[in-house]
Design a protein around this nucleic acid. Sequence first.
RNA 1: UGCCUGGUAGCUCAGCGGUAGAGCAGGUGACUGUUAAUCACUUGGUCGCAGGUUCGAUCCCUGCCCAGGCAGCCA
Length: 509
Amino acid sequence: MSATTLVCCRSCSRAFMVRASEVVGPAVLVQPDPAPAVSACFRADLAQIGPMRIKVREALASETPPGEITVCGWVRTRRDAKGFSFVEINDGSCLRNLQAVVDHAVPGAEGIASVLTGASVAVEGRLVPSPAKGQRWELQATAFRLLGEADATFPLQKKGHTAEFLRSIPHLRARTNRIGSTLRVRSRLAMAVHEFFQARGFAYVHTPVITASDCEGAGELFRVTTLDLGAPPRGADGAVDWAADFFARQAFLTVSGQLEAETLACALGDVYTFGPTFRAENSQTSRHASEFWMIEPEMAFCDLAGDMDCAEALVKHLVRAALERCPEELEFFNAYVDKGLLERLRLVAERPFARITYGEAVALLQASGRAFEYPVAWGENLQSEHERWLTEEHFRGPVTVRDYPAAAKPFYMRQNDDGRTVAAMDVLVPGVGEIVGGSQREERPERLAAAMKAHGLDLESYRWYLDLRRYGTVPHAGFGLGFERMLMFVTGEANIRDVTAFPRTPGHA
RNA sequence: UGCCUGGUAGCUCAGCGGUAGAGCAGGUGACUGUUAAUCACUUGGUCGCAGGUUCGAUCCCUGCCCAGGCAGCCA
């Protein structure tokens, strides 16, 4: 066990305990934990698969030939030569394929002419240095087995496909370089989210997916019911009798775990949620989904400045994690999806985010000389075009905007002393727009109750929320990071449907 | 939900008021330590659906369906 020490994050001022070995100078090096070079293979039928199965990722990373091995995967392409064939195999463990050289005389190779793109195969053999360019190792086959054929109707070709076409085959598109890469990045960034918070002493909490509160946020909610929609029980006034429903009241899918996270932050200190969220809005854009994953930290004894520090540190941590642990995938995206991706991500990882107030943003926009479609005036919402100008043209990088007009924001945000703004902040990034939205929460009971009344809320149904201020109230703050939007930013994908394996959007489930 | 663009072969697309084209994929053959292999030949389409205009519609018009982009709502 190495000694722990109290340090401050290099990006945010929050203190936390880390192992001494992780400390570099006055700051913390968050220890990169590269995806393992050796990945376990669990075999179902050794007799059928063959000896010592290893994954393509491991095979390609070999320093010395590992001896007799078996590689299982799906054929990406087959090229025939006189007396033997080249078969490129991908097993999803990494972006690259393993080239197998299959002599037509080896057992099982008789029918290799019918092995088309998409077929599943198991190839036994030895890794040998490849005499040709393009790969370090290749698999010299000693036995070949076709596990499952794929005929000419298999829709994926060696050529590039449009994202639109791939969306029409969600059950097969994960076998492509593009979708497979987004899913590998997604997996590793999910892990990095937990590392970030766990290293800082946050507790991972699970807030309910089903909620009885219908006013959590501005969003529209999906109803959860077991009533017969054709003939629901009705009261004397003809209205649906929700008391007869499963939860004895109306119930919905959550649009945010924030309010529950606040109660847990006011007990555990620093907490975060990471789970699915549902919005029933009929949003028809490239960056909205009806079901998406959101990361929502909530920190007790924290103000808006700490909130912004945490959000910036998290975004940077995830960008660095992607650069360090998914280099091949990011190279791929940089080459085929978004030419400027790597340069942009490296800048984001290094430079501090710009920070301005809403009022300063309005002034910048007004001074830009740009003719915007929507008016720029204090009190008006920042529109997409305004956010794009700020991040893509003016700052050319992420911007954190804070202190928004109170009238445009929810009841729970802390009122600033100027009487007209609240301690809210959004992190805007190029290409995606709003990736983080958060605030310091109103911890003063009278102010909160007044704001709830002003928003037309029933105080009685929020008694528990007011109790947090009634008993031991503390300054606290938090935010929501859209996980898919983060993935869009990191991969350069322009559509949220392409960073989600099975996207749910209006009209599609 | 509003505005815009599109729907032609399995995929990516061209085309045109007069009876359908290419590349790739598939098939056959040749050639080859290939790597988006190459070369030759070849299979394959009621041109999104329904009406209308016309001697004749894949093309023009209307409606509908679907997809994409932008906007609003937000993560």
